[in-house]
Computed example of a mutant assay.
Amino acid sequence: MTGTLISLISIFIGILGANLFGVYKEKYSFGFTGNTLVGVFGSIFLIKVFGRLGFNPWYIMQNETFDIWLFIINGIVSALGGILGVFISKIIYIKMNK
């Protein structure tokens, strides 16, 4: 697996997290397309912010080895990024439309 493939998997996990959050919390949903867009950007943002701690895609593939635990943490952070992206975006949307 390469760093680029891990990045794409992380973005997909963020999209999945955002859309599942939108399904279970319909109050915070922007629809499928909106949740997908917010999930992409939320996932990328959180991975970039917390990737400096050592679980970005290139640390996962360091020295031609695959570290499964770093990949699991990366997936959790990606899903959390998608969820937080939808949540924060909806709060901003509600505040701006008052």
Results as ranks from 00 to 15, higher is better:
29 S>L: 08
95 K>G: 01
45 F>P: 01
41 F>S: 08
13 I>E: 03
12 F>P: 02
34 G>A: 10
66 F>R: 14
62 Q>N: 15
23 V>Q: 10
68 I>L: 15
42 G>D: 10
86 V>R: 00
48 K>I: 12
44 I>P: 01
55 F>H: 13
3 G>D: 11
83 I>S: 04
9 I>Y: 12
10 S>Q: 09
50 F>V: 07
71 F>S: 06
66 F>Y: 15
10 S>K: 04
75 G>T: 07
13 I>P: 05
62 Q>L: 13
23 V>T: 11
88 I>V: 15
37 L>I: 08
29 S>T: 13
4 T>A: 12
58 W>E: 13
77 V>W: 05
72 I>R: 03
19 N>G: 06
67 D>T: 09
48 K>G: 09
59 Y>L: 13
5 L>K: 01
73 I>Q: 08
13 I>K: 02
28 Y>P: 01
77 V>F: 06
55 F>V: 14
27 K>L: 00
28 Y>L: 05
55 F>G: 14
95 K>H: 08
37 L>A: 09
90 K>W: 06
84 L>K: 03
97 N>A: 07
38 V>N: 03
74 N>A: 14
85 G>S: 04
87 F>W: 10
62 Q>M: 14
94 I>H: 03
1 M>G: 11
63 N>P: 00
17 G>D: 03
29 S>M: 12
20 L>F: 09
88 I>S: 13
